[in-house]
């Protein structure tokens, strides 16, 4: 009986202590730069950042980590022993951009990623609504990236018009471009990938996407999305950006897009 009275007491006391221990800001979420941050926040609207922070802490934090390093508790199992893993926002390397390889994404790029999600790895947050998606993007930019994001891109996004509409001729030309630019080295002649072993920036094994399966595309599957992927590349992975190869003849990138679409039977 005594033994039990003791252990019972222990449980009660410990549970109470735990409850007291719990603080408003929460464990591991304190911001060392709070004071300093407040000044900057005023500029963009402290309320936006505050809401963004709330959203981040309620959901993103589990994967992206309290410091935005991509080391959230749930991060490591997303692709165990392989790519992808949430990226380190503080390192400033982003896969999904409309800017040149090596540059930071625009705010719209962050918003697109959050809105659409990343099939297989990150849910879509479309139902947050545009305003909240903007707020959480602002929070990421201020808190983790800590640099001004570009507001425009030097890559030229041209329309697919005239001879560059989706047609058999365009697909045939696209196949040539595919060979000329060496896409096959990684993606294989049939687009399904080669056996070569590649690593991402973190040293994790990564497979080139199977171009015949649109459901594996992380950067979107629309014509415009694929155009953007080819131009910008996916930083932090072996997939290079090809904007310089298309400089001055941006239209011909559409041929390549059409070739990929044709490989998917679209």
């Amino acid at each position: 009986m005594n033994r039990h009275a003791f252990s019972f007491g222990l449980v009660v006391v410990a549970t109470t202590c735990l409850s007291l221990f719990y603080t408003e800001a929460g464990f591991g979420q304190t911001n060392p730069e709070q004071g300093h941050d407040m000044g900057r926040m005023e500029e963009t609207g402290a309320a936006d950042i505050a809401t963004g922070k709330m959203i981040y802490r309620m959901t993103c934090i589990h994967c992206h980590g309290s410091k935005g390093r991509g080391d959230g508790a749930a991060a490591i199992f997303i692709g165990p022993y392989s790519h992808p893993r949430p990226n380190d926002f503080t390192a400033g390397i982003f896969k999904f951009r409309s800017t040149e390889s090596g540059q930071l994404p625009m705010l719209e790029d962050l918003m697109r990623t959050i809105r659409e999600g990343i099939p297989g790895f990150m849910p879509s947050f479309r139902n947050l609504g545009e305003e909240r998606i903007r707020q959480v993007s602002l929070y990421i930019a201020r808190e983790f990236i800590q640099k001004e994001l570009p507001t425009q891109t030097t890559i030229k996004y041209v329309e697919h018009v005239g001879p560059y509409t989706y047609s058999v001729e365009s697909v045939v030309r696209g196949k040539e471009v595919y060979k000329r630019l060496g896409c096959f080295a990684c993606h294989g002649l049939d687009g399904r990938g080669t056996g070569i072993s590649l690593k991402d920036k973190r040293g994790l094994p990564i497979k080139p996407v199977d171009l015949t399966r649109q459901e594996t595309f992380g950067n979107g599957t629309s014509h415009e999305d694929i155009y953007r992927t080819i131009m910008t590349g996916l930083d932090g992975t072996p997939m290079p950006g090809f904007s310089s190869q298309f400089k001055g003849k941006e239209e011909s990138a559409w041929d390549l897009v059409h070739y990929i679409l044709s490989r998917q039977g679209r």
Binding site: V11, V12, A14, T15, L18, S19, F21, Y22, F27, G28, Q29, I61, H62, G65, S66, K67, R69, D71, G72, A73, A74, A75, I76
Partner: peptide, 16 residues
């Protein structure tokens, strides 16, 4: 009580 949100760490302790 839950703890940990970085360094690939998480956990909790419970009393019943």
């Amino acid at each position: 009580l839950n703890f940990g949100q970085e360094a690939y760490t998480s956990g909790s302790i419970s009393g019943l």
